[in-house]
């Protein structure tokens, strides 16, 4: 290796670290972290899609959506005890969120170290778009919203009229509050912007390089983000427009229900 003769010597921005055992060493690299973000991103996209799809059952009436809510706890029931499969899914999601956020945090730190001095003149961006430059902010909005959403419609602690198991009632009450409906709409706009860049760049992080997919990637990202956005914001809008109204719905009771 040639010696650096320059009067401005090179500095490494990454501290030297012990190599982790295979295959965890993949995650030590930035390319590996992006790969992990793409894989967990696919998991989270799958969740967001089926979450939106399942919630569309609200348009079929209280019996349908409340039955669906109970079914989620009953998946794989003869093979596994009730709610076990649901908890496996939830654990997978929590792990995906944790990896996704840790990788984002670590890469952000790395990027700040790599450009410690900003340009004095204003940058004139050509290709970077609003979505790609706001990923960490839309991501933070989504995670904060997630806790609000859980407190509102899963735990019920932010929903004074919460009735466990009566999904229809809880949604109708929650979204009837204008500020809450607004929070859902704003958060879903942030989610859609986040998904737009994520659903496109995950192909690059995974190394899917077939030229036949180049045009597809953009269309997929726009389509996926739009479907999620339209589906999700339709719920608060439908409640505000009195398309969804609660007239004394009750939780679903299976014929052989023996308590929760």
């Amino acid at each position: 290796m040639q010696q650096d003769q320059s009067s401005a010597p090179l500095r490494r921005v990454q501290p030297a670290r012990r190599r982790w055992p295979w295959p965890l060493d993949l995650y030590q690299s930035a390319v590996g972290k992006k790969w992990a973000m793409a894989v967990t991103g696919v998991m989270l996209l799958g969740f967001v899609f089926f979450h939106m799809l399942g919630n569309l059952k609200v348009y079929l009436g209280p019996a349908q959506i409340n039955h669906y809510g109970e079914w989620l706890r009953d998946i794989a029931v003869p093979a596994l005890p009730r709610t076990v499969f649901l908890w496996l899914l939830r654990c997978g999601l929590i792990a995906a969120f944790a990896v996704h956020m840790h990788a984002a945090y670590a890469l952000t730190r790395m990027n700040h170290r790599a450009r410690p001095t900003k340009y004095a003149s204003e940058r004139d961006y050509v290709a970077a778009n609003f979505a790609s430059r706001t990923m960490r902010w839309t991501g933070i909005i989504v995670i904060l919203f997630l806790f609000f959403h859980l407190a509102d419609l899963t735990w019920g602690s932010l929903n004074p009229h919460f009735v466990r198991g009566n999904v229809y009632h809880n949604m109708a009450y929650s979204f009837s509050r204008v500020p809450v409906a607004a929070i859902y709409i704003v958060a879903n706009l942030a989610l859609a912007v986040h998904i737009f860049h994520g659903a496109w760049s995950l192909f690059a992080s995974l190394g899917v390089s077939n030229p036949k997919l180049v045009a597809f990637r953009r269309r997929f990202a726009v389509g996926f983000a739009s479907i999620i956005l339209l589906g999700n914001i339709s719920f608060p809008i439908a409640v505000q427009a009195h398309i969804i109204e609660d007239h004394g719905s009750t939780p679903y009771h299976a014929p052989t229900e023996q308590g929760r």
Binding site: L10, R12, V13, Q14, A30, V31, K33, K34, L107, M110, N111, R113, A114, R115, Y125, A127, A128, N129, S132, R133, M135, H197, W200, S201, A204, S205
Partner: peptide, 9 residues
């Protein structure tokens, strides 16, 4: 060791 990470801007 020297540079930042790619976010596909």
């Amino acid at each position: 060791e020297f540079f930042g990470s790619c976010t596909f801007h």
